[in-house]
């Protein structure tokens, strides 16, 4: 696992063997849905490639709204060695930890990763993390389909915590709004990829089938 970044496929294959790839009983008001394995693998792979090889193992990353830990674990597999996963749902964190234990069995090279979990509310007023403590913040925020601007609150927190990069997923329909907002903050931001997110049916009002929504993976360079 040292040196070059493993392929998206390699990361995805390992993640897909984890026991808790979905929430057992998602809490709808939190818009809990697990990041699909292929998306997590792709995001983690991209994050790892953006960091110099000799620095990759010494950056501190945070996964905001980690849920069952899929994205945090994907980052470890991609070669980031210090990851903190936080979520408001402490039961989800127990599943995240079980996932981590399962992953270490599947992939003994990752055992050395310094992966931590803490119950923290990712909201500006109740955040329990010191500002600028991290080099990289990744987030798969609630898309705000239930609670308007929920994703924007997450993004503000991420920019407050990270010294360098923020990687975040947002509905493509909000692209121009986000772009203006980030520009106002003085951040350099770009859409790295447009992806399809298969949102489970639980979150779609009055519809029975799951739907795909278009999401953008943003890379934001935080103003120093």
């Amino acid at each position: 696992m040292r040196g070059s970044v493993p392929s998206v496929r390699e990361i995805e294959t390992l993640l897909s063997q984890l026991p808790w790839r979905q929430f057992q009983s998602p809490r709808v008001h939190l818009e809990q849905y697990t990041t699909p394995v292929h998306l997590a693998a792709r995001i983690a792979h991209h994050v790892a490639l953006c960091i110099d090889e000799d620095e990759r193992r010494s950056v501190q990353a945070v996964d905001l709204g980690t849920g069952t830990g899929i994205l945090a674990l994907a980052l470890c597999l991609a070669g980031l060695n210090h990851v903190l996963g936080v979520d408001v749902d402490s039961e989800a964190l127990e599943l995240a930890r079980a996932n981590a234990a399962a992953l270490w069995e599947l992939c003994p090279q990752s055992v050395g990763a310094v992966l931590e979990f803490a119950a923290v509310d990712v909201q500006p007023n109740s955040l329990a993390l010191a500002p600028k403590s991290f080099d990289v913040a990744v987030l798969n925020p609630p898309f705000g389909t239930r609670q308007r601007s929920a994703d924007i609150a997450f993004l503000d927190v991420a920019c407050h915590l990270s010294r360098r990069f923020v990687y975040s997923l947002h509905k493509s329909s909000t692209r121009s709004y986000l772009s203006r907002r980030l520009e106002r903050f003085g951040c350099t931001a770009q859409v790295y990829a447009r992806l399809r997110f298969d949102l489970p049916a639980t979150y779609v009002f009055h519809r029975e089938r799951a739907v795909d929504i278009d999401v953008d993976l943003w890379q934001i360079e935080v103003k120093r």
Binding site: A118, V120, S126
Partner: peptide, 14 residues
């Protein structure tokens, strides 16, 4: 919780 993590945490209220 590692002491590293402890050093990054603050009280959510104060």
């Amino acid at each position: 919780m590692r002491l590293l993590t402890h050093n990054l945490l603050i009280c959510p209220v104060h």
